[in-house]
Design a protein around this nucleic acid. Sequence first.
DNA 1: AACCCGGGGAG
DNA 2: CTCCCAGGGTT
Length: 329
Amino acid sequence: MKWYDLNARELPWRSTKNPYHIWICEIVLQQTRVEQGKNHYLNFIERFPEVKSLAYAHTDEVLLYWKGLGYYSRAINLHTAAQQIMTDFNGIFPNHFEEILKLKGVGKYTAAAVASICFDEKIPAIDGNFYRVLSRIFADDFDISSSKAYQYFYNLALLIMPDERPGDFNQAIMDIGSEVCKPKNPNCEVCPVRDNCLAFGIGNVQDFPLKSKKVKAQDLKLHYYHIRYREEFLIKQRDDSFIWKKLYDFPEKIPSHFEKWITHEKTIHHKLTHKNLEIVISEVVLDNKKEFQKFSEENHFIITNYEESHLKSFPKPLENFLKKEFEES
DNA sequence: AACCCGGGGAG
DNA sequence: CTCCCAGGGTT
């Protein structure tokens, strides 16, 4: 705690105990580096300053403010949870761990973070940093990819968690994990708990934490049709399954008599954490406005143009594709 | 308990 | 290339 008082990172959400702000911050930062999420957080709370404005917003706009962050179910769940607070909690942000946990998209970690930071509940917020710092301090080779890891390290954390300032304690562990006890090349020389760290004593800090599960990316091919009439083209909204939940993309099928209007194809290779994508985009240029509108109406596609498409959230590779198309023309 | 879900930066 | 990030939901 002494180290934290002197070395805490200066971050936008460190100066508030507003549970709405802390909640948004915690969701943004799930599996996301602080530097990557900081601006999204600031933009988000500026546009949606309290629960009500988020609850009453259109899903498309919530997704727009989430554009590029990934794990889009977080945005969908955030929107749902805001409405949940309006209906189930009378618009007042819940102030106990068990109630916060009921919010869609809020798991044990996030509920613990909000409860400890905003409401001073003594509950460890076990995130990736906590796993790493604890497993090194105790030289503990408990597999953090095990489904029992959370409960195991939760109990371990209680052994060293003070009664005072639980929120600051949780954030102190995060800062040590992020700035000192890093996954690679930890900076043990300046670590405030070095003398109490068993792994450091043994000299094998790099061996912790133990993580057995390794996920391999799978290959996936997608075929899109960029169907154009003059400056306009067709888009659709994805469903909430599979990848890129609720984001917008292009039609994936065309009637066979459209094939003669294919002018060229472009292949994009895009790497995701769990997938290696090969995306083929066929350019279909129609000279017949009636065909264009008929096809659009029959399949419930949306007619848009480059400027208008900025009001929708597209997957990263498709956004890059549109940008290049526009710059070339 | 296993599996799925993005995008980005570091090494 | 691999690993990991202020995890959670679904099956």
